[in-house]
Design a protein around this nucleic acid. Sequence first.
DNA 1: GTCTATATCCGGATAGAC
DNA 2: GTCTATCCGGATATAGAC
Lengths: 204, 204
Amino acid sequence: MNKLSGTKGETHKKILDLAETLLLTHGYHAFSYQQVSQALGVRNAAIHYHFPHKTDLGVALIQRYRRRFTRFIEAQQMLAADEQLERYFELSDVYFLRNRQICPSGVLSTEFPRLPQAMQFEAEAFIADMRTWAVSIAARGRAEGCMHYQGEPEAIGAVFFSALQGALQLARVDGKILDTVKIQIRAMLGLPSPEPLREIPDVT
Amino acid sequence: MNKLSGTKGETHKKILDLAETLLLTHGYHAFSYQQVSQALGVRNAAIHYHFPHKTDLGVALIQRYRRRFTRFIEAQQMLAADEQLERYFELSDVYFLRNRQICPSGVLSTEFPRLPQAMQFEAEAFIADMRTWAVSIAARGRAEGCMHYQGEPEAIGAVFFSALQGALQLARVDGKILDTVKIQIRAMLGLPSPEPLREIPDVT
DNA sequence: GTCTATATCCGGATAGAC
DNA sequence: GTCTATCCGGATATAGAC
């Protein structure tokens, strides 16, 4: 309890980190306490000490992820809409490059009907957060004059949220689809297409 | 063997039908021979007689689905591109209305990395089929002058394939997103928005 | 906080009778 | 083609010692 970094021990955090990886690669029902405990070099029962039921672990994972996502959004409120869209794209790339993970909303919506109620509750809120962010980017893009599209921001946001989630999953089968979708979404919004290779500044 | 409808018995088909439903609602790893046998009123071992390994059942499911999908596409080659797009949309509605099922490409791409090799092989081919169809609709829509969009047909096809797959999964959490996405896709293609109520095609 | 040990259940799979 | 019986492994979970 008097450790340096908070009230929860190291193991607690290690479990969450590992479980998150397993969730995004395997899905909720397809990972087990055995896998977590073995990878961490502890016993099955040790995991149950920190998270008595698997549901507790699942809920903790979504809650932590929500907090992190909220901070992520807040940190870019000062960016222009087209910049924020690129951040959204980068988020997808990060998942894909990490061993072809899919996004939390993808796992959670797919498994939704068979998730424990407590997890459904959290998942619904998290997915609403994500969708709201997508919509706000579309709305802001129109207001700032950098995005041009038919229809309502709500609908455009829903489309690129859906399209990115779908593309990230399909990328497990054919990785090229992710870039194709990103390019087309930019085109649909009247944004300059070829993404500027964000290069390392050579100014040594 | 001298039954009316082919070389395989009734049970064989019943198993496939039930397993297909379970696959699209639960996912491949989340349904069991127990569930199939109990719902069919036979014993576990009876299922193993028809499909010795679960992989065999999985492969048979995708292969049957592919054949059916191919017939479905061929049956509408004479339709205009915008009509074909509406058929695509209706396909999503059918899944959703059937107990919030998701599309085969959704389950298969999500579970892809943990599918047996033989199933991966079939899944990849099936997903390529679906994507090809989406692209052909986009290409034909432009050629026929009824669809107007920026970018290549390959990219537009990839976007609405991804978007529909994503929306169908997200619809498990909030059903309204499916219609929103359909409306916006029409808008993106310069098509008239309000959809004419239509009959559900029986894709068997 | 972590361990041993154990309980219970379920999943896939097989042998062999009917 | 379907049954009984059985095996094995894995998954969630608990009691209680250290």
